[in-house]
Design a protein around this nucleic acid. Structure first.
Lengths: 193, 193, 193, 193
DNA sequence: TATGAATGAGCCTTCATTCAT
DNA sequence: TATGAATGAAGGCTCATTCAT
């Protein structure tokens, strides 16, 4: 019921992109279907050819944004590199994702916990962040990282990434190699043994 | 014109509390005056005895939440304690605030940057977070904390607090002294020199 | 049921005056009871001590305005004067009334035919314009005025008065003896035999 | 932005007609969109397909009523006829318009000066009443009409028309050739030299 | 009597959704 | 498939009226 006829993938993409962009610019609520359709260059009622209703549209956008996020992280980190370097690669990718896919991230953060979220999206949201966990476990086994439950480590990294990306977007700091190295070093010092 | 007749403080409090609770539970956006009034136990039109309109209501709720936050942080940290202990005290208070005033924090995070925010709220939002900066500066002068721009330090702490509180609320970790000490230690190791 | 307790005539007068003034300034519709009460210097709910409801208030204001109009015309014209002079006196009084009691006239014109008008006011509106008819009859008997049904004569006079007063208020013409004489002469030439 | 999508001219006409009729019957003020829509046989929200808001609706109705008035007076008077005959023709047309387009005239009289009137309508209202002025000037040059400022002449005619039409509508007099001739004669005697 | 506070009813307006083509 | 037109449902807000003092 969620998505009906994925015939014209072009239009679907336009809708998804428009929705994310508008959500980032003006907020997910009260984004109207008229606005979305106009931004996507189609008629309002055409949306109903692709989506059962507004909730289905949002959930599909969420599914795609999540999917693209996974793709974004897809290119695995170099397993032969030192663990800190691997961690830095992942950290970098997380920052890049928040910056380069800002619209989608913005949409997702507004969407999560909203009343639009259906059960499928809720469960879909649970998994993710695979690569990070793997590094944590390896790092703990090698006694490079602190021997604390993984959520503690993950929290610091996620918090670091989120706040650092926010600083960059707010232009409170510049997005230079130096800045990133500094920010990452704080994060790394926090989780290393 | 923001708030009109603060005669019955009881009702006003009920409205503010209901608004924060509903914002935390179902999201700030899409929240209707009917819902708020019902939750506060008054008629919908009675809201207009206290507030000029929906925007004024939200801004007043924000003002109160901010005010309570300031009160919450009010009791200063012990300036004679070692810096790490002082930092821990602030970190603890931030966690406590996010847990004990969850509704209000949730409301504020959703409200900030929303189209409901008026100019007064915007300026009101600027000040805050005084205690933390002071500790950072002292810590850097004493060469206890890393000699990096303050925003880097602040980001790690804020990210740590936010994510740790989230873990506790999600019951991914228990809110014990041990858990807090662990989480804080990661944060501290990140910012210390 | 119309009027309840005419105890405090002062307040009642204030309400009537305020209603007429506001009706003239901003229109009879959507004049609110709150505005009227404020302009009259009393509390909104106090209006209900004097009037059963809004409709009753308006009808009472109408009754009073009508009554004052009758009083205004009260001082009879000089029956010994030539008929044209008598007609001029009445015509003058009608102009004066429209200018000096503009608020009341404005209220009445807006009120007549409105959905507020109850049956009593409707019948009350029928009588009036006594003095004019008397002159017409006398004038026709003396073969000074045209021998046409009185309504034709009355129409021209009423139309003349209304439009002349409008010109004066719009400052399209000055309210001088000369202007009035000119305007009246047209009217008189129309009705005289 | 005044009128949005004049696609279904039938519906638009129904709305305009219904609005005028209701304004004439129950007054322009207090008229609700629900009433108008119901009288026009459409859903309330459908009104917003054709008009931006209530004010736009009223202004469009005014524009159309004014336009139809111009059309009504369109067929010029016979310039070869004697001046009195020309005047009679115009006077007749004015009466006819007030009788045959009563709803529209009633709407316009209530609308003019109301808070609904926008700038466009205000300017639109300025022109009109061209033919009458022309006759006055010619008549004065030919020394057929009184040598007084035109507004005095116009006032008597307008007043005559208005009151005569009112008499006819109230069935105080019959709308016969004789009646009209009588009423016009009074008017003519008033303005002629 | 006088009034501030409270509210139900109803208005204007928006918008997700359906209908007709 | 695609869409302009239509609309029911609901939201924010106003206001005449009532309540409690």
């Amino acid at each position: 019921m969620e998505i009906m006829k994925p015939k014209d993938e072009k239009k679907l993409d336009a809708v998804v992109a428009a929705t994310c962009r508008l959500a980032a610019e003006r907020g997910l609520f009260g984004l109207t279907l008229t606005e979305i359709a106009k931004a996507a260059g189609i008629g309002t009622s055409t949306l109903y050819v692709y989506f059962a209703d507004k909730e289905a549209l949002f959930n599909e956008v969420f599914r795609r944004a999540k999917h693209e996020a996974v793709d974004f992280y897809g290119s695995d980190v170099d397993p032969t590199a030192p663990l800190k370097a691997q961690a830095r690669q992942v950290w970098n990718k997380m920052i890049d994702h928040r910056l380069q896919r800002y619209d989608q991230v913005s949409f997702m953060e507004q969407f999560v916990g909203s009343s639009f979220m259906n059960e499928e999206s809720r469960s879909y949201s649970a998994r993710i962040s695979g690569g990070l966990t793997q590094i944590f476990i390896e790092g703990q086994e090698a006694e490079i990282l602190k021997a604390v439950p993984v959520p503690f480590l993950a929290s610091l990294v996620v918090g670091s990434v989120r706040e650092t990306a926010r600083l960059i977007r707010a232009q409170s700091i510049l997005d230079t190699e130096e800045s990133r190295t500094t920010a990452f070093q704080l994060c790394w010092d926090g989780i290393r043994a």
